[in-house]
């Protein structure tokens, strides 16, 4: 499949998934609802994570901004998602450069998955970027350092949850790619 079409479809699917389904799943800590905040798993940065290796930084930035603004539009959050997303898009190239043995330009027509990177590097790569994204997002969203405990718990738990969702997504869709290759 054409790589542009494929990524466009992925964009639509991830946005719809996030906006129509994941938005409704409000996870609440079941043991003690009073001290634990409710949160929504934000899986949509996955789109940026899965773009091809050799994509240039300015394209990444613009795509990240578009994705963030789209999510903001649906979630009514102004530009918070976009802010976090642009940051993630900017950091992506550096993280990948640090993790991959060769120069990124040498991976032609490949995208960061478990198949191309291996389990550990991919997990580190996605977990780091998701953590950055969630930290920035929740800090901006709460805009209040008074509840530092809640902020930290929120960041930690939503990062873990999002990573679970991302793993599920990767496991569901990797085999299809393998069959095509």
């Amino acid at each position: 499949m054409n790589i542009y079409l494929k990524n466009f479809l992925r964009f639509c699917i991830i946005v719809l998934l996030q906006v129509l389904i994941l938005k409704r799943i409000t996870l609440i800590w079941w043991t003690n609802p009073h001290t634990f905040p409710a949160f929504i798993p934000d899986v949509y940065p996955l789109f940026i994570l899965l773009l091809p290796f050799e994509i240039s930084v300015w394209a990444l930035l613009l795509l990240g901004f578009t994705l963030g603004i789209t999510i903001d539009t649906f979630m009514n959050t102004g530009g918070i998602h976009a802010f976090a997303m642009v940051l993630v898009a900017y950091l992506r190239t550096n993280v990948l450069n640090a993790l991959m043995p060769r120069n990124l330009n040498e991976y032609v027509n490949q995208q960061p998955t478990i198949k191309t990177m291996g389990w550990m590097p991919f997990l580190v790569y996605s977990a780091f970027l998701i953590f950055i994204h969630h930290s920035v997002f929740y800090i901006l969203e709460m805009w209040n350092v008074g509840n530092l405990n809640i902020l930290l718990i929120k960041i930690a738990v939503s990062t873990i949850t999002t990573m679970l969702f991302i793993l599920i997504y990767i496991l569901l869709f990797t085999r299809q790619n393998a069959a095509k290759l």
Partner: peptide, 14 residues
């Protein structure tokens, strides 16, 4: 570009 986009986002948030 990164800084411009972030500033745009901050304006939007504001």
């Amino acid at each position: 570009l990164f800084l411009l986009l972030e500033i745009l986002c901050i304006i939007l948030i504001g």
